[in-house]
């Protein structure tokens, strides 16, 4: 949501038809916990389109629960998490999980400066003490042992013992949103202890309607016919991915947006689709399957005038 204020962005999100009581609750939350810290409340790059999902997720956070967003690639997990932070009026701390994440990476670590040991807080510590929205991105990329440190923060205790330092007490406005892609390369099962501390929301890959909304939002001058074809193209890729004929490389929503940007800058549809989608498949057979799929949807020689009404 480029060049819009936080208030305008909130209107775009709530304009999808969220229930009034929910909006009032969110408003009350923002008034109760006005943000005055140094960190900026950022406006997400794209709005999340999907009224039902948005409503469920917002309700979960307002109830005080931690939220686990589960969905395949291109389901919009991070966009949703950022939009929720905006609706709560709190800044987001993004913590990317990987295999070597450990307690010190999350909470903080000792450093040795000027002859003495000093504590350098990690992102979870910073977020929890200031009352931000902590986005635990791809939480199932980390080992379960490394995540055990979060247990007392995520449950009713809302606090954490930092050995040798003061106890960390959670700011009441702090919310945790974890994301995970089940079955993605490098991922693993979350253990029950951690899972029980979240409410779970399954996100579908955006359907044709949500995709058309997103395209219309991002490219207001995109012709209706071209938008429909791009949405259908994405649905074809999604289907092929779901049928396990191709990997998730070509199922790339960001790539689809890039394709339209490249076309707007003068590349042909064929060139842009290669760069944005097909060439992400390094396996030649997989690439051939994706290229065939693209060839059945869009004429490779189409240019911006076929896509954008302003050109």
């Amino acid at each position: 949501m480029e060049c819009v204020t936080a208030e305008e962005a909130r209107k775009i999100l709530t304009g999808q038809g969220l229930e009034q009581p929910l909006l009032q609750e969110a408003e009350a939350f923002r008034e109760k916990y006005p943000w005055q810290g140094a960190r900026e409340v950022t406006v997400p790059r794209y709005p999340y389109f999907g009224k039902e999902i948005l409503a469920k997720a917002l309700a979960a956070l307002l109830s005080g629960a931690n939220l686990l967003l589960v969905g395949p690639k291109a389901a919009g997990k991070n966009i949703l998490a950022e939009c929720l932070a905006l609706l709560l009026g709190r800044p987001a701390w993004n913590v990317s999980f990987h295999i070597d994440v450990d307690a010190s990476y999350l909470i903080g670590m000792d450093t040795f400066k000027e002859g003495e040991v000093r504590f350098r807080p990690g992102p979870v510590h910073e977020c929890a003490s200031q009352g931000g929205v902590c986005i635990l991105d791809e939480i199932n990329m980390a080992r379960n042992e490394a995540l055990a440190v979060l247990h007392s923060l995520l449950d009713h205790r809302r606090r954490l013992e930092v050995p040798g330092y003061e106890e960390l007490r959670l700011h009441p406005a702090t919310r945790f949103i974890a994301t995970m892609n089940y079955g993605y390369a490098g991922t693993r099962e979350l253990n029950e202890a951690l899972l029980s501390r979240f409410v779970v929301l399954r996100l579908p890959v955006p359907g044709e309607r949500a995709l058309l909304q997103l395209l219309a939002y991002e490219f207001p001058d995109l012709q209706e016919k071209a938008a429909r074809m791009m949405a259908e193209l994405f649905m074809d890729i999604r289907k092929k991915y779901e049928e396990r004929e191709i990997s998730g490389r070509a199922l790339d929503l960001r790539g689809l947006m890039d394709v339209l940007r490249l076309i707007r800058l003068g590349l042909t549809a064929g060139e842009a689709l290669s760069m944005g989608i097909a060439d992400k498949c390094f396996d030649s057979q997989e690439r051939a399957l994706v290229e065939d799929l693209l060839a059945l949807r869009l004429p490779g020689d189409w240019r911006r005038k076929e896509f954008f009404s302003s050109c």
């Binding site: 074809d236 289907k239 092929k240 004929e245 399957l289 065939d292 799929l293």
Partner: peptide, 18 residues
Amino acid sequence: SQRQKRALNMVWTAAGAY
């Protein structure tokens, strides 16, 4: 076998039924 798989995928894409 790769060509057959590719041809089959062409049919499936158009059919929408794998």
